[in-house]
Design a binder for these strands. Structure first.
Length: 643
DNA sequence: GCGATCAGAT
DNA sequence: CACATCTGATCGC
C-alpha cells in the first residue's frame, strides 16, 4: 500500500496520489489509478473548498481513471476540474500559483502501468530534470525498454529520480508467474469445472478493487460465459469490459461480493444469493486470486493450488515481482530512486540497499570492485540498420569474441547515458583463469544481491507450492505450451475436510513450466472422476490489456498480439533461470528469425548470460561459469548471442 | 454528526 | 498470508 506523501522532491508544486495535508496547496494534482490508497483526501471537504475557489487547479489522470472516478458520486464534485490526458501523449502543463502568479511549465507523459484499468505512470520533464513516478505497476521484464517515451532516440532518457512501486521489492518475491501463465491456469480450471454441467459454477473470490477485469474478459472470451458482478455502470463507456460482465445471476462464473461472502460460500450459496437453479443445487467452487511468488531457483510455477474440497487459490498479481522491478530500474538507471511502498515485512533501508545499486547515485560513489567475467560479455555482430525498429541500445557490439574492458552489458551501458563518466570504470584486474577453472563451484554464500535462497522464501508458504514431481498421489493439472491438457476431478467426499490442505495430499496443481516438460500424468487416489478437456492451443491475446486503455483509444492491434506472442517464449526462456550455458551460447543467429524477434529478445531478457555491473552484479550460475571457463580454457570460441 | 485513524477481518 | 477494502471502535472537532 502506498505510503508516498504526494510530492516529488524535484517538483513540489505537484501532488500525486495524495490529496491531504500539504498537498492541499498543490498547483496541480495527478491520480495514477483508482485505488483508495492512492486517493487519500481526494473527497475531503478541505479540497472540495479549494476547488470551489479556483478556476485553475486541475486533476490530471488517464481517461479511464476519469471515467471510473466520476462514476462514483462521492467524487462528482471533481467533474469540472479533471483533465483526462491521453496515454503516451506528452502534454505541457502550466503550473500557476494563484496567489503570487508565479508560473512554471512542465511536460507530463502518461505511460501504461499494467496495474489496473486506467493505471498509469507519470513522466515529468521540466527545469529540475526528468522524473518518473510509477504509481503501482506490473510490467514484465523488458517492457520499460519497449516504451518509446522513456527514450530519446536509441537511449533511455536521463532520468533524475524514479518514485517506485516497491510492493514486492524483496528477493523472496523474486519471481511471480506472468499474467499469461496465471490467466491460463485459472482459465483451464474454470473451463474444467464449468464444462461438467450447467450447475457447476465458479466463484472468483476477488477483492473489491479494480484490476481483475482482464481476468473476467479473458474467461468470458474463452469460455463464452459472462461474469456476474455487483456493479457495472462504471464500465458503461468501456464496451470491451462491459460486454463480458453481467448483473444477471444466471451465469456460471461469478465475481459478485457480499459482506459475508465466505459464509455464503460455506453454505453453498453464492454472494449474490444463488444457491440452485431449476431446483437443482449449484456445485460451487471458489477461486481466490492471491499472489504467489517463487525464489529464483524454483523451476516450476504452480499457479493453481487446491486449498480445500471446493476451494482453490490462483496466482494473480497487480504488482511487479522483484526481478521485474530490478529489470525496470536497471533499464531506467536513474540518479535516484525513492520507494513508494514498504514491502511486507521490509524496511526502507533494506529496500534502498537493494535498489541503490541500480542507480547512478550509488555507482558514482562506489569504488569499482573486482568483476569476474565482466569483460566477457558481448560480441555478436548484428546489423541493426535495416530493422527499422526501435532499439534502445547502444550500438557497440563487436564482431568477434574478445575481451573488452567494458563493464556491463549493452543495456546497462546504454542506460547510463546521462553521465558519460559513469561508463568509464577503471579496468579491473584481469581474472586469473586457472584459479577460477579449478573451482568446482563458486561460493554460493556470496553477498551478491541476486543470489537467492533456494526455496521459495524462508517462512513463506512453500508447502502450497509443492514440487509436483515428488508427490505421487497428487492430481496434477498441467497447463503447458506444448501439450495443454487439463483434468479436473469432481471430488468425492471421503473425509477431505479433515485433511490438512497444505499437505499436498489430493492437491490439484496447475503447473506451468518449461517448454519441454515431462508428459502429463495423473492419479486419483480417491477414485474421482477425471474429465479430460480436449487440447486447445493457448490463446495468447490474453495479455492484451486493451481494456485498460482509454475508451475509444484501443491501441492494441494484431501486431501487438504478435509481438506478445513472440516475446512470451523468450520471456519464459529468460525467466526459467535454468538454461545451461550451452543453450545460451549461440554461434550464429538463425537467419530465418525475424529481426524484431531478436529485438524482442534483446529487450525482453536483460541477460542470457548476464554480467551486470558490479557491485550489484547478478551471480552467474556456477555451472554456467564452469562451462564457460572450460570452453575458454580449451581455446574454443565463445560466441554469445547477446543484446 | 462527521471525519480521521487504527485494528481487524475478509 | 502478502495485491485493497470495508467495518467497527475510538477520538476530536
Amino acid at each position: 500500500m502506498s505510503r508516498f506523501g504526494g510530492r516529488l522532491r524535484e517538483y513540489p508544486a505537484l501532488s500525486i496520489d495524495r490529496f491531504d495535508r500539504d498537498n492541499l496547496r498543490a498547483r496541480a494534482y495527478f491520480l495514477s489509478h483508482c485505488h483508495k490508497d492512492h486517493m487519500k483526501g481526494l473527497r475531503a471537504s478541505a479540497l472540495k473548498r479549494r476547488l470551489e475557489g479556483s478556476l485553475k487547479v486541475k486533476l490530471y489522470c488517464s481517461p479511464v481513471t476519469k471515467e471510473l472516478l466520476l462514476t462514483n458520486w462521492k467524487y462528482k464534485f471533481w467533474e469540472n476540474h479533471i483533465v483526462a490526458l491521453e496515454v503516451e501523449t506528452p502534454t505541457q502543463i502550466s503550473l500557476v500559483d494563484e496567489t503570487s502568479g508565479e508560473k512554471e511549465d512542465i511536460e507530463v507523459t502518461l505511460l501504461p502501468a499494467g496495474h489496473c484499468p486506467g493505471s498509469v505512470m507519470f513522466l515529468f520533464q521540466g527545469e529540475n530534470g526528468t522524473v518518473l513516478y510509477t504509481g503501482d505497476f506490473r510490467l514484465a521484464k523488458g517492457e520499460a525498454a519497449r516504451m518509446e517515451l522513456l527514450h530519446s532516440g536509441t537511449r533511455v532518457k536521463d532520468i533524475q529520480s524514479v518514485y517506485l512501486d516497491t510492493t514486492f521489492c524483496d528477493p523472496k518475491f523474486y519471481h511471480i508467474p506472468s499474467r499469461e501463465e496465471c490467466l491460463n491456469g485459472i482459465l483451464e480450471l474454470v473451463r474444467s469445472w464449468t464444462s461438467l454441467s450447467r450447475y457447476h459454477v465458479v466463484w472468483l473470490n476477488c477483492k473489491a478493487a479494480y484490476g481483475y477485469e482482464y481476468l473476467f474478459i479473458n474467461l468470458s472470451e474463452e469460455l463464452g460465459i459472462k461474469v456476474h458482478v455487483n456493479k457495472l455502470d462504471m464500465f458503461r463507456n468501456m464496451p470491451e469490459i462491459l460486454c463480458h460482465v453481467t448483473t444477471d445471476r444466471h451465469t456460471q462464473i461469478h465475481a459478485c461480493r457480499h459482506p459475508r461472502d465466505d459464509d455464503c460460500f460455506r453454505g453453498n450459496r453464492l454472494p449474490c444469493g444463488m444457491t440452485c437453479q431449476n431446483g437443482t443445487p449449484l456445485r460451487i467452487i471458489s477461486i481466490k486470486p492471491s499472489t504467489m511468488w517463487f525464489g529464483e531457483r524454483i523451476k516450476k510455477t504452480n499457479v493453481i493450488v487446491r486449498t480445500g474440497e471446493s476451494t482453490y487459490r490462483a496466482c494473480f498479481s497487480f504488482h511487479s515481482s522483484f526481478s521485474e522491478i530490478k529489470d525496470f530500474l536497471r533499464h531506467i538507471c536513474p540518479v535516484n530512486v525513492y520507494p513508494n511502498v514498504l514491502p511486507v515485512g521490509g524496511t526502507e533501508d533494506k529496500v534502498m540497499e537493494l535498489l541503490q545499486p541500480l542507480c547512478r547515485s550509488y555507482r558514482r560513489n562506489q569504488e569499482p570492485r573486482y568483476k569476474p567475467l565482466g569483460t566477457l560479455k558481448r560480441v555478436h555482430k548484428r546489423d541493426l540498420s535495416d530493422t527499422g525498429k526501435k532499439f534502445y541500445k547502444e550500438d557497440t557490439e563487436k564482431n568477434t569474441a574478445q575481451v573488452l574492458p567494458q563493464e556491463s552489458d549493452a543495456t546497462s551501458t546504454a542506460n547510463c547515458n546521462g553521465v558519460p563518466g559513469d561508463q568509464q570504470e577503471p579496468k579491473a584486474d584481469v581474472p586469473r583463469w586457472d584459479t577460477f577453472f579449478k573451482c568446482d563451484r563458486l561460493d554460493e554464500s556470496s553477498e551478491n544481491e541476486d543470489n537467492f535462497p533456494s526455496s521459495a522464501g524462508a517462512g513463506g508458504s512453500q508447502s502450497l507450492f509443492s514440487d509436483s514431481d515428488g508427490v505421487s498421489d497428487s492430481t496434477h493439472i498441467s497447463s503447458q505450451n506444448s501439450s495443454q491438457s487439463t483434468h479436473i476431478s469432481e471430488q468425492g467426499s471421503q473425509g477431505w475436510g479433515s485433511q490438512g490442505w497444505d499437505s499436498q495430499m489430493d492437491t490439484v496443481l496447475i503447473t506451468s513450466q518449461e517448454r519441454n516438460a515431462a508428459e502429463f500424468s495423473c492419479f486419483s487416489r480417491t477414485g474421482s472422476r477425471m474429465i479430460p478437456v480436449p487440447h486447445e492451443a493457448a490463446k495468447e491475446s490474453q495479455a492484451d490489456n486493451s481494456s485498460w486503455k482509454a475508451p475509444g483509444q484501443n491501441r492494441s492491434g494484431a501486431s501487438d498480439v504478435i509481438c506478445d506472442l513472440k516475446s512470451k517464449d523468450l520471456e519464459k526462456e529468460a525467466e526459467a533461470g535454468t538454461a545451461h550455458v550451452q543453450e545460451v551460447l549461440v554461434e550464429t543467429p538463425d537467419a530465418s528469425r525475424a529481426p524484431d524477434l531478436e529485438l524482442k529478445r534483446d529487450s525482453q531478457s536483460s541477460s542470457d548470460f548476464e554480467i551486470p555491473l558490479t557491485p550489484d552484479a547478478e551471480l552467474p550460475q556456477p555451472d554456467k561459469l564452469y562451462c564457460l571457463y572450460k570452453k575458454l580454457a580449451a581455446g574454443e570460441s565463445i560466441c554469445l548471442l547477446l543484446p
